[in-house]
């Protein structure tokens, strides 16, 4: 008997997605031979978290950020330093990473939010590079290019999650929470306000919204999620160095949400998984795999300008998914 997915109740479908994330995927990875596939899975989930957070600020609020990897790095270093120097457990370093990255995001956002379009993008590029240069050269604090070694593995309330499987479950939990948070934010009146900023911020100011405040909030939330992704990265990789947080990583995250479809939450997830898993699948062709990724990106821009799953269809999906909450005559979402 074939089960028609669209007939299931929304709650059941959400449970189904969670079951796939926590049950089917790890089982599949274990069948593929344990260790390395799980590493790829963790990386993919970390980048899913990052892509989802960038999607909030770039896709929904329309602020092109070219420095997202910088905030990822700040979170990773905050968690790594707290864990190695102060011996904080993961349950404390995770929120710490989010708070530090969000605080830095607010400091960056306050003066730069007046800038529009390409000027804002360039300012974030500058900030991202400044973070990278600081991580690289502030040797007494960050150990510079040597990086931070032997970051303790994850342990939650006595539960040892040090292996790759434990790491996978932690990364999956953080990614699922990030997706849920951004989902609730973007499919609500608040998300509609952010979309109106993207389309025309002067017009939305005339409608009584406060564009600067909304932009700063969206940017801070996005940076907080990126910082928490950094904490997961630091604890699962157990070694971080400034090389992982360069301009190229920012661009990679941006490419993920563009390939998936700007402003589309499922698109961001698909894009992230694709751009992390594709190079691994193409490992067989060796040195050519980065070329293949570039070609893939180019072709998807050329032939799928809206992305794999565009914003309009993604919102339609969310609308059906949410069912009753959206069925009112105004159809605008959570209040």
């Amino acid at each position: 008997m074939v089960v028609n997915v669209s007939n299931l109740s929304p709650r059941l479908r959400q449970l189904g997605l969670v079951a796939v994330l926590f049950g089917a995927i790890p089982a599949g990875l274990a069948l593929m031979g344990g260790g390395y596939p799980f590493q790829v899975g963790i990386t993919a989930l970390i980048f899913v978290t990052l892509a989802v957070s960038l999607n909030l600020v770039t896709g929904t609020a329309g602020l092109l950020s070219l420095g997202h990897a910088g905030f990822f790095g700040v979170g990773a270093y905050a968690a790594a330093l707290a864990a190695t120097k102060l011996h904080w457990p993961f349950l404390l370093t995770l929120p710490l990473a989010g708070i530090v990255a969000a605080a830095l995001g607010v400091i960056v956002a306050l003066p730069t939010m007046r800038l529009i379009s390409i000027y804002f993008a360039v300012a974030t590029l500058g900030v991202g590079e400044m973070i990278h240069v600081s991580l690289l050269n502030w040797v007494s604090f960050t150990r510079g290019p040597m990086g931070i070694r032997s970051i303790p593995p994850i342990e939650i309330l006595g539960l040892d999650l040090s292996g790759v499987i434990g790491g996978y479950y932690v990364a999956a939990t953080v990614a699922a929470l990030a997706i849920f948070a951004v989902h609730r934010l973007t499919h609500s009146y608040y998300g509609n306000a952010l979309r109106s900023l993207r389309e025309d911020d002067q017009c939305s100011a005339a409608m009584g919204l406060n564009p600067v405040r909304l932009k700063i909030e969206a940017f801070a939330v996005s940076c907080a999620i990126a910082g928490m992704a950094g904490a997961v990265y630091a604890h699962t990789a157990s070694f971080i160095s400034p090389d992982s947080f360069r301009f190229e990583e920012s661009i990679l995250i941006l490419a993920m949400i563009v390939v998936g479809g700007l402003g589309s939450l499922p698109g961001a997830v698909i894009g992230a998984v694709l751009l992390i898993v594709l190079p691994e699948v193409l490992r067989g062709i060796g040195d050519f795999r980065m070329i293949a990724v570039g070609v893939f990106m180019f072709l998807s821009i050329l032939f799928l300008p809206k992305g794999l799953l565009g914003e309009a269809s993604a919102i339609g999906l969310a609308r059906r998914q949410l069912g009753a909450a959206w069925r009112g005559d105004i159809g605008a979402g959570w209040k």
């Binding site: 941006l254 570039g294 990106m297 180019f298 821009i301 050329l302």
Partner: peptide
């Protein structure tokens, strides 16, 4: 912007 970026990667 992104297509020029993709070409530059390649």
């Amino acid at each position: 912007l992104l297509s020029s970026l993709a070409v530059s990667i390649v």
